[in-house]
Amino acid sequence: MRIKAIITALVLTGISGSAAAENAADTIKMIDCPGAVTVIHGSNGKLQLKVKGDGADYDFMAENIADGHEPVIDIDVPFIRETSERRRRRYGATWRAFSVRGAYVGASMPSDAVRGIRTSWEWGISQIVGAELLSPSRRTALTIGVGFFHRMQKVGSGYHIEGAGDGRIFLAPDGEGMRSVSSSVSSFGLQLPVMLKQRLVGPTGMAIGVVGMWNTYTRASTKWTDPDGTSCRRKYKGLHQRAFSVDGLFILNFGSEIGWYVRYSPFRMFHRSTGPEYSLWSTGLNIGF
């Protein structure tokens, strides 16, 4: 309690005692062995102090002036703090379902120097439905969802897809006289991204994670024109593509909608014996975060 005490001390009758020189500067009067001390509670918070002793009577008046500030007593109980922190940790994080996030379209480039595999494109929705575990701050989330993808890998630069029978394909140089050759490997499937999402500033944020890819359907086709002008087309189905693979995915979203993504697919789509071996980098536009 901080109360400023202002002693106005009116010495009304014969101050005969001598104040000792060694007393503190704010000492008004030292009385040894007082005979009687009477404290009278006066009006307006004033106190009157009557002292008898030292061969003389003294009458002091003191005034307590509160500065208006009452201290606040704070109690910190550690186990209560621990309990509430645990509760916050336990109950602060929440699950939330969502739909249609991460619609993307971008370019896919082979990361291996495979002749004939060209930069192509891909599109999909990485999370058609999903759920996220939000941190208490709501700035960090772990998301899991299900979506689909479609990749069209073009083949060119003097090469095209040829069938080797029994669902196997390979890259073959264009034959003499083949004109307007267009060849590609197209794959479609489901994806299961597991992402750690972090909001940075406002709705802007980033996400990093892995995407399980289930390559449900893959086909290849080659179209060309013969020297006599005949248009030919061959389709190869029932291919031996890798059924399951894992991609790495990074998304940087500017605002809550538009963003940029980079995806790395280290698993090659085909084994050497069943098709062209290539892995992909892809990057493009991401919508919905």
Partner: peptide, 8 residues
């Protein structure tokens, strides 16, 4: 010692 009581 366990419960911190402070006045401010």
């Amino acid at each position: 010692n366990l419960i911190k009581i402070t006045s401010k």
